[in-house]
Amino acid sequence: MTKDSGVETATLKVFRYRPEVQTEPFVQEYKVPYRQDMVVLDALNYIKDHIDGTLSYRWSCRMGICGSCGANVDGEPKLTCASFLHEFKGKEIKIEPLANFPVIKDLIVNIEDFMEKLDHIKPWIIRKEETPLEKGEYRQTPEELEAYKQFSMCINCMLCYAACPIYGMNEEFLGPAATALAYRYIADTRDQDHEARFPMVHDKEGVWECTLVGECSVVCPKGVDPMLAIQKTKILGATQILKPPRRGK
């Protein structure tokens, strides 16, 4: 942060892309009054409200749960609502859209690829027999809950995809969050057809593409640890071939 005529300021170098104005992306520099407790998102909002109304980005809850506001901050995928300016004290902050996704405008990226993958992994409880509601909830012990709880914490913020070099090279790769969510249902005792998701996760471009880089688990803001889910899914795939083929269906 620099002192600028008596007021402390933070300098943000923001990636801009306005397809209707200019065909090529550019970088724009903004100076924002700096407060110790300001997050990067506050700075973006300050720019939007007071300096440049054209700067475009997504956000909503500003408490790290809606998953809208991811961006590459100084090269690292982060939730802008959870990255404090003081973490970057003493230098300029480079704000770019999440890596590995096509940019629609400024910091807004196209995440349709993930939305389709999420749809494909059947992220819902599959029952072979439905229990009538009158019989109440399916019983699940705290230990059974613990087996998948961590993987149900994914907020779909896409930081893990932005951090994954494999996804960067092959967008067909199922990727961290989708696998973690698939595993979340596979490991849920209420689900009665785990194997329904095996073709997706054990596809040629499913978990086998993962080379254990581990960056997904490093950047995950919710401690989901997608890498762990991928490894667990790999073990399921490897042990699956020892089992007799499934019958029916």
Binding site: P199, K204, G206, W208, I241
Partner: peptide
């Protein structure tokens, strides 16, 4: 267009 998925048994074996 829904992608066709298929378990890759060879990869599973190699990984095992």
């Amino acid at each position: 267009v829904k992608k066709e998925y298929k378990s890759d048994k060879l990869h599973a074996l190699l990984w095992g």
